[in-house]
Design a binder for these strands. Structure first.
Lengths: 210, 210
DNA sequence: TTGGATTCTGGCCATGCGGTCAAAAATTAG
DNA sequence: CTAATTTTTGACCGCATGGCCAGAATCCAA
């Protein structure tokens, strides 16, 4: 797998094909989990869907745990990068908050399998310790991003006085909660309507009172 | 298990001890899932935690599927009954909405294991069909309850004009999303603060504009 | 071309699972 | 007390899983 002599070869520790395979397997895993559920997504099933032998997964990943971890990383980094790019284009705090919410829902609508998979994985952290780790590694950065937007909006005088941490958790929660219902049944929830409702609601809730 | 001659004995189809055992096993399952995760909650583990033999579960339940279904039923009926009792005490729509939100968080704080278990089970519905069934059986009634509150508030003139279905999904989503983060790490989220924030936010968002 | 390193295959294994069962224990009825 | 019935036990089964590995195939530099 890795070179034996050139063990610390600067930046090129992994070959091109290595990274391509890992990406392929991670994307295949997301697809399989989304359509069949995590409980049915055995290594054999994932390998079959991708069209490779089961051993390839074991060869490129330390185990199923690492594969799932990479899936989580892929889901979060993709989503966050998209949201961040939209937020950064907005000129002031109120519009950055609005961009955050709208980008979240736009990305959801375009990548439903990612969120079906995410919800499946949510329930797979056995120990309380594993749950805390997931929260610290994946969720906290999102909340911090939001918190920064809110805090700067207060400093600029656009937002009223509130606890940025609490409101960040509330915004994140509202987005995720609507997303959850949409994952269960996409026809039961109108994403665009909910997004618009959340945008106006949080605008009302954050703007400085006259 | 059941009487053989008195097969249609009016209302008493299940004995007293039968129901007691079922309740005991369901509660044990909730506790085991909350502390170890659904993936580790085998029938053997649950039986061990309860202090009975594995076969007893198979004797009182058709299989693990039925047990999990009963767990879900227990979680939702308990929660909904509490919320409904609080909502029914409120005199008008705005206060009923407030009671709904506050009761949700009050029940959460007092029954954390229930919600840890619920989140674990959320991800266990493999097929899209199973997800839809769960949504229709468990989630829709909650949304309908909320929708009724909102609609009556519009009819009475307390609330502005909005889509009751969309706003019901939004309220439910906001509650569940905050709950989710709290399940991952209870110290990262201040439930009381979030509840207060949601109450004032949805009050602002629903009240009729002057 | 050649030889070593990398990547892939398909079968194998130990483990733990849900479920079943005959027999033992406990409970209830007569 | 005794017999019938319900309930519990612990061992057992078939099965699917994640992980492993020897050898085949492929790639790549010399």
């Amino acid at each position: 797998m890795r070179s034996k002599i050139v063990q610390d070869g600067q930046k090129k520790k992994t070959s091109f094909i290595e990274e391509a395979r890992r990406r392929q397997i991670v994307e295949g895993a997301i697809s399989t989990i989304a359509s069949a559920g995590l409980s049915q997504a055995s290594l054999a099933r994932i390998a079959q869907d991708v069209g490779i032998s089961k051993g390839v997964i074991s060869y490129h990943f330390a185990g199923k745990d690492e594969l799932i971890q990479q899936v989580i990383n892929a889901l979060f980094t993709e989503t966050n990068r998209f949201i961040k790019s939209r937020v950064d284009q907005a000129p002031d705090a109120p519009r950055r908050l609005r961009a955050f919410i709208e980008a979240s829902f736009e990305f959801m609508a375009a990548n439903r399998a990612n969120f079906v998979t995410l919800v499946d994985i949510w329930g797979s952290f056995g120990s309380p310790e594993a749950k805390r780790r997931f929260n610290a590694d994946m969720y906290d950065p999102c909340r911090h991003h939001l918190e920064g937007i809110l805090r700067r909006g207060q400093e600029s005088g656009d937002f009223r006085d509130f606890s940025p941490a609490t409101l960040a958790a509330t915004v994140q929660g509202a987005i995720d909660g609507v997303m959850l219902q949409w994952v269960f049944d996409e026809e039961a929830i109108d994403l665009a309507d909910c997004a618009a409702e959340l945008v106006t609601m949080f605008d009302l809730a954050t703007r400085r009172r006259a």
